[in-house]
Simulated assay, not measured.
Amino acid sequence: MKVLALLSLLGVVAAFAPAQQGRAVTAQNALFDDIFGMDLFAPKKDQNDYGARNKKKLVQGKIGAGSYVPAGLTAAEYQKIRDAEDKKKKANYDRNVKKAGVFEDYTEFYMKRGTDSSQKWKKSATLGHRMAKTKYDFDSVAKDGKKYDGARK
């Protein structure tokens, strides 16, 4: 009986004792270190930056003997159209790259507008606001008799 009481007392004490720290599995830790430490863009770190398209050698193929040419055009005419489209696309991309990362300071905008000290800005039709186009005409009725929200006259 004394042995049984001693064993149960040891069991209770062991249950509340702090767990012993075992040695971590180093192979598993090394694997996680390798995975989480990977840099997927290591060879070219700036390849996904905005404007990086200009550094890449992206070219459109030229029209050859077996290439598609729309009916009614010669290969030279079609190539001229494709070159014009490429030039337009590049100009648009370059225009957007110049705007990247350029932000307007709200305080400067507010001070320039003049709303901080006087009401001079109120003379215009827009009351100093910048207007944006909307999809619907909110003041008139469409040809089918519906307003922009679908309601009838």
Rank of each mutant, 00 (worst) to 15 (best):
residue 28 Q to L: 12
residue 116 D to A: 15
residue 107 T to L: 10
residue 66 G to E: 08
residue 77 E to W: 07
residue 140 S to I: 11
residue 99 K to P: 03
residue 65 A to R: 01
residue 9 L to K: 01
residue 79 Q to D: 08
residue 147 K to N: 13
residue 88 K to G: 03
residue 26 T to C: 01
residue 95 R to M: 07
residue 3 V to E: 03
residue 113 R to F: 08
residue 45 K to E: 11
residue 85 E to H: 08
residue 45 K to N: 11
residue 124 S to Q: 14
residue 7 L to P: 00
residue 53 R to K: 01
residue 59 V to C: 04
residue 70 P to M: 06
residue 29 N to E: 14
residue 151 A to Q: 08
residue 129 H to R: 12
residue 15 A to H: 00
residue 130 R to E: 15
residue 122 K to A: 15
residue 147 K to H: 12
residue 64 G to H: 05
residue 26 T to P: 01
residue 38 M to Y: 10
residue 72 G to S: 06
residue 96 N to F: 06
residue 59 V to Q: 11
residue 114 G to I: 10
residue 1 M to W: 00
residue 123 K to G: 15
residue 1 M to V: 00
residue 116 D to V: 08
residue 60 Q to E: 08
residue 91 A to H: 01
residue 109 F to M: 11
residue 140 S to T: 15
residue 115 T to A: 14
residue 47 Q to I: 13
residue 134 T to G: 14
residue 92 N to L: 07
residue 107 T to A: 14
residue 60 Q to H: 08
residue 71 A to T: 09
residue 139 D to F: 15
residue 10 L to M: 00
residue 110 Y to W: 12
residue 73 L to A: 04
residue 126 T to S: 13
residue 60 Q to T: 09
residue 71 A to D: 14
residue 131 M to R: 10
residue 26 T to E: 04
residue 118 S to K: 12
residue 84 A to L: 09
residue 128 G to C: 09
residue 80 K to I: 02
residue 137 D to K: 13
residue 98 K to T: 11
residue 19 A to P: 00
residue 56 K to S: 07
residue 74 T to M: 04
residue 6 L to I: 01
residue 123 K to F: 14
residue 65 A to G: 04
residue 23 R to H: 01
residue 151 A to V: 10
residue 51 G to N: 09
residue 56 K to V: 08
residue 144 D to R: 08
residue 57 K to Y: 05
residue 64 G to F: 04
residue 47 Q to K: 03
residue 86 D to K: 03
residue 87 K to H: 03
residue 82 R to Q: 09
residue 68 Y to M: 05
residue 55 K to N: 11
residue 138 F to P: 13
residue 133 K to P: 09
residue 55 K to Q: 09
residue 35 I to Y: 13
residue 125 A to T: 15
residue 109 F to K: 12
residue 132 A to K: 13
residue 134 T to P: 10
residue 60 Q to N: 11
residue 30 A to K: 11
residue 44 K to P: 02
residue 9 L to R: 00
residue 99 K to A: 14
residue 117 S to Q: 13
residue 48 N to Q: 13
residue 88 K to E: 05
residue 99 K to L: 15
residue 79 Q to P: 01
residue 100 A to F: 13
residue 6 L to H: 00
residue 112 K to S: 08
residue 86 D to S: 06
residue 125 A to P: 12
residue 146 K to F: 09
residue 18 P to H: 01
residue 40 L to K: 07
residue 62 K to W: 06
residue 131 M to K: 08
residue 2 K to G: 00
residue 56 K to L: 15
residue 116 D to T: 10
residue 110 Y to C: 11
residue 64 G to W: 03
residue 105 D to V: 09
residue 11 G to M: 03
residue 58 L to E: 06
residue 141 V to F: 07
